[in-house]
Amino acid sequence: MSESALDRTARALDLVPYLLEHQGISIAELAQVFGVSEKQINDDLILIHMCGLPGYTPLELIEMYYEDGYVTVSDPQSLKKPRSMTSSEITSLLVSLDLLKSVRSDSIADEIEALKIKLKSSLSFENPYVVVVDSKNSEMVEKIEAAIVKGNALKIVYLSGQKDETTERLILPLEIYQANSNTYLNAWCQTSMGDRTFRVDRILSFETSSGDEISYTPTTQQHKGGISNIELVVSKAARHFIEENRAIIESVEDGDVFQVKLHPIDVEWLIRTIIGFGSGIQVAAPKVLANEIQERARAIRALY
């Protein structure tokens, strides 16, 4: 199904100011951010490239460069600023904030309320949505999140959802989510050597563990064993690498770019992932990894 000219226009008008603030972004990431295919983004860019102000000489056209899948805008003409938000966008964000508040501890509640007031100031009507907070166990959630962020293992006593018995398990927490009034934790379970989902309210007790015994690798592919002391330089444009792979990240230093240290991990997965980010991620150490990535990239290049 082809989309309407109107939807495309809306996206194009949003693309230009977004590009202006995300110079050098990859088409792959744009596609992800805008929720369309890379081909669609390509087509959009070609179209935008031909638009401009009356006169339509090169001086009056929207000026942008795209090279090797990365896009830069040098002259947006009159599209410097994003369009104001629609009422649906504002109300959706307000509900999102209410939802965030409902699962977070009270310490951040005031901040969220203040933010809502800021957004509401551009709203000329009342918000039709209301989020009612039910019970929450934010203390436990926050401890688990901290473990996810730091990549810590947890030793838990769990009341099984499968066998009606309590077991002691060593787990590496990976992902936590709320669904149907329950909070769930996806984790690698060292005890049963597999990925498991736990209900947070059935975790009877837990303590942080060094994780030395954890042998988790985020892939089922063949692997060459873990390499330690991996350091990456991740550009702002590639920041979702960090956001999506918290489980393997030891530390992040923010600056013009992100300096990222990884836990020892399976490099096969990492190599393949890093190549996909193009210039967005540089391997600062170890050298062998950087070399390997170069070699792989060259091999890919040699196909053409």
Partner: peptide
């Protein structure tokens, strides 16, 4: 996306992982 086009430097300061 529109808010991210305002040129406000984003931060990564939250440890929130809950979805």
């Amino acid at each position: 996306r529109k808010l991210q086009s305002l040129g406000i430097p984003a931060t990564l300061e939250f440890e929130f992982r809950m979805k």
